[in-house]
Write a protein that binds this DNA or RNA. Structure first.
Lengths: 354, 354
DNA sequence: CTGAAAGCGCTAACAG
DNA sequence: CTGTTAGCGCTTTCAG
């Protein structure tokens, strides 16, 4: 474990190049307004001394930090069982890196950590925040708003106040769910069940709504509440088989849930998709592809969601509207951009299970 | 996206409390040396104004940042398919949070990002670095050493120079592998194969060595190289079945690999564990428990590894030796602490597959 | 186009 | 025990 050594300062570079600190500063920050002979001499001095600007000093005067906080408020261990979170982070990281911003990760383990996060955000350490995994009665959004930090949410928040709606990025959960269920209907299935996610998250509610859009008049016993985990999927599937032995299709709220359902179906000797067709949600590759049989599922571009969140935050900071940022967002075309929310499209990936 | 507002300064608090800035500073930083009537008045002013110290200003003078970088150098997508990484992060985050340190996440997508990471680390933005996923010929460690930042590695690095060895935290990969293979032997298996991980990582090499410790004289065709992924596990298992149809046990380098092997075994009508026993490594719950059949595997305490890394870094910074930090590390007792490396024990978790 | 000078908000001697 | 005084390293008017 090496000792940190003291780094050269602007002053040192200036001395070496025979110019003033101001000139060095100009060159280091874009270089406009400095004539060529000088600029080159400065660059050389920077190189020779291995000068790296001291971010603390810079922030002190600019009030910018080139850093963004990513807040993951997931008390349950679910985030850690699901590559979802990692993919999202990867997208965020890519975008942030491209704009020379750092990613400060704030993980919370329950309410006790909320105050800490709020304090940090309020402390003006970062230029903005990206916030995930909000649940219905979560006090965090309120705290964050009070902190006065530009924020983009991952997933549609479920609250709304008088002011302008929160900026968020979401997948078209409802539309994706509809597509999945319609596919099942197209397969000739009539007893189509839905295993929900945790219903205090909007993603779960939206998927349930999508299911109902198509199956509005279905037997209510075909809907069973669950929690986005394989274990929950198993329990739900057992109950389903018990309540409705004639079920011939299952739309699970996510791939992990589908995995649990698949296992119980196998246990009970039901063949997939012959006896019961199964569709998941997410298309988390290692899960969906490795399932037995490989899972038909609703794909959402998780990495792109992360990237877009970061882009919105960065652009918004520059004074543009989310819409403008959105217009410039390459890659997946947003399905919808109502108010301050951006909703990415989903696509049905057909594999063997349905 | 709210505008950031300007926060109250020390000065403001001082004015409100009718004291000097120095006094407020003292109260804010521990409060020793300030008599009670005053201290209380200051605390009140802090409260009323909602004062939060400006970290940039503080760092500028203290040269400390209370921030640690976590560098994940994994060009492949593997990290994102494996909850390993998330668990490690969780452990790190917990420990860092407990000591009021922030976690700055540096994800790299290949060599192009190395320079950026090196620059950041050299820039003195953080007090230390936690570095993961090193491969054999990785230039990153060299760059990091040059940056002169206190560093703790996750997993035993494969290089060594003249100086004091690098500080690292690792699992007892070799011992764990031995235990797994011995278990297989105890089951009466004789044709025990090993599907390796990526052999440019020490964890994979150590597991292979452990296998050889027990099976030194075995048929060399029983060892097939792979890459820690389910797909790789499938390919390896096919080759194994082809080369040695009489194989009766498989020790896979990790759970994901075992998953692939399981699938191919099933495909070929081999029953697990009756015909072929299978053992994995990691005990990543959603993988191992949900496998078909549930996987017997070598468990490593991933979260604890993360926590320990952070602890070592924090303690090392305070001038203690890693050994001292280690002695204070609660929870899992280290199996071994040679030089600057800390090796955590592993345990065999028996489920249905072997 | 370049340099001089004035802080950004905070801590850390040093006096009193 | 408390206040005064210097800066930390950088950007940014403002002159020249």
């Amino acid at each position: 474990m090496t000792e940190a050594v003291s780094r050269p300062t602007l002053e040192a570079v200036a001395a070496r190049a025979g110019v003033s600190r101001a000139t060095v500063s100009r060159v280091v920050n874009g270089g406009d307004g400095v004539r060529e002979p000088l600029a080159e001499r400065v660059r050389q001095a920077v190189e020779e001394l291995g000068y790296v600007p001291n971010q603390a000093a810079r922030s002190l005067v600019t009030k910018r930090h080139d850093a963004v906080a990513v807040v993951i408020a997931e008390p349950e261990a679910r985030v850690f069982a699901d590559p979802f979170f990692a993919l999202q982070l990867r997208g965020i990281s890519k975008e942030l890196t491209a704009h020379d911003n750092q990613l400060v990760l704030l993980l919370t383990e329950g309410r006790a950590d909320h105050a800490r996060v709020a304090r940090y955000l309020a402390g003006g350490h970062v230029d903005g925040a990206l916030v995930f995994s909000l649940h219905l009665d979560d006090p965090l959004p309120g705290l964050i708003r009070k902190a006065g930090v530009p924020t983009v949410f991952g997933g549609r928040p479920d609250w709304s106040d008088g002011g302008p709606g929160p900026v968020y990025v979401d997948s078209d959960n409802r539309g994706g769910a509809r597509e999945a269920v319609r596919h099942l209907v197209g397969l000739g299935r009539t007893r189509i069940a839905h295993i929900t996610g945790v219903l205090d998250q909007t993603s779960a509610v939206d998927r349930l709504d999508g299911y109902r859009d198509v199956m509005g008049d279905a037997d209510p016993r075909l809907v069973v509440e669950s929690d986005f985990t394989p274990g929950g999927g198993e329990r739900a599937m057992r109950e389903l088989l018990d309540r409705c032995p004639d079920v011939d299709a299952v739309f699970a709220a996510n791939d992990l849930t589908a995995l649990g359902a698949l296992r119980v179906l196998r246990e009970h000797g039901r063949r997939v998709p012959d006896d019961v067709a199964v569709i998941g949600f997410d298309d988390v590759l290692p899960v969906a592809e490795q399932a037995e049989p490989p899972l038909t599922t609703v794909r959402q571009d998780i990495e792109e969601m992360g990237r877009l969140m970061a882009r919105l935050l960065l652009r918004g900071r520059a004074g543009e509207t989310p819409g403008a940022a959105l217009a410039q967002a390459s890659g997946a075309a947003p399905a919808e951009a109502s108010g301050a929310g951006v909703v990415l499209p989903t696509t049905l990936i057909r594999r063997a299970s349905a």
